[in-house]
Amino acid sequence: LEAHYLAGGNVNTVVDALIAAQRANIELGFERATAIDLAGRNVLEAVQVSVNPKVIETPNVAAVAKDGIEVMAKARVTVRANIERLVGGAGEETIIARVGEGIVTTVGSAETHKAVLENPDGISENVLNKGLDSGTAFEILSIDIADVDVGRNIGATLQTDQAEADKRIAQAKAEERRAMAVAKEQEMKAEVQFQRAKVVEAEAQVPLALADALKSGNMGAMDYYNMKNIMSDTNMRESISNINKENDNNNNSNKRD
């Protein structure tokens, strides 16, 4: 006791734990009790939990069945302290995490959420058979499902989000095609305007070419007047042809009336 006190241990707790273990017929030696105390565990509480198991309540665990429906489950885990594994064994947080993982796995393997609601004890059996107390300072006596509720329709939500994403992608592609079509149209209009400008530029060169031909003697004055007469005659014939076409159209229209 003196050595344990000098090592920083709690003598009163160790003595009380040894007395309680003896009265409860639990095998607990002095060396093990002091080792548990120096490890930071409450050895008296461990003895009391061995005699009177405690209940650990998990928070709401959300899991999704294969039909996409979310199930919210809460479990109560009855544990008893394992004196042999108090030193180096995991605590309550590990038990809660492992039970939550077991609930998620069991619900996730169910075909529908209705199967989980109809047989909640199936979750307890599957989780209990996994040996979740391995490596912990506790021995799991039972796992009871305290509450099961139906949550959101995760499958429908995911499908809706996917459909919305596909819609946005399709709209973006359509907008890209529209922009390319507009750009192509603008490019064609620019090309047409460019060609028209070249024609106008070429037509502007005709008088200069005629003047240069007259000046250099490659073309005489009579040739120029003959060309003008031919152009005038051509314009007159085109005008007469257009008038005849209009008269024919009017006559045909009158005949139909």
Rank of each mutant, 00 (worst) to 15 (best):
A115F: 06
A115S: 09
V116Q: 01
L117D: 00
E118R: 13
E118N: 09
E118H: 08
N119E: 10
P120Q: 04
P120N: 05
G122V: 03
G122P: 00
G122N: 03
G122Y: 02
I123D: 00
S124T: 13
S124Y: 05
S124K: 06
E125S: 10
N126L: 09
N126Q: 11
V127G: 01
V127R: 01
N129R: 14
N129E: 10
K130N: 08
G131M: 05
D133N: 09
D133G: 10
D133V: 09
S134P: 00
G135H: 13
G135W: 11
T136V: 05
A137Q: 10
A137C: 05
F138I: 05
I140H: 02
L141Y: 04
I143S: 01
D144S: 08
D144N: 11
I145R: 03
I145S: 02
A146T: 14
A146R: 10
A146D: 13
D147P: 00
D147M: 07
D147V: 10
D147T: 12
V148M: 02
D149M: 11
D149L: 13
V150A: 03
G151T: 13
R152P: 02
R152A: 13
N153R: 08
N153P: 04
I154D: 02
I154G: 01
G155T: 09
G155W: 06
T157F: 05
T157S: 11
T157E: 15
L158R: 15
Q159E: 15
D161Y: 10
A163Y: 07
E164N: 12
E164C: 00
A165N: 09
D166P: 00
D166G: 02
D166M: 10
R168D: 10
R168K: 15
A170W: 06
A170P: 03
A172K: 14
K173N: 10
K173S: 08
K173D: 10
A174Y: 07
R177T: 14
R177C: 02
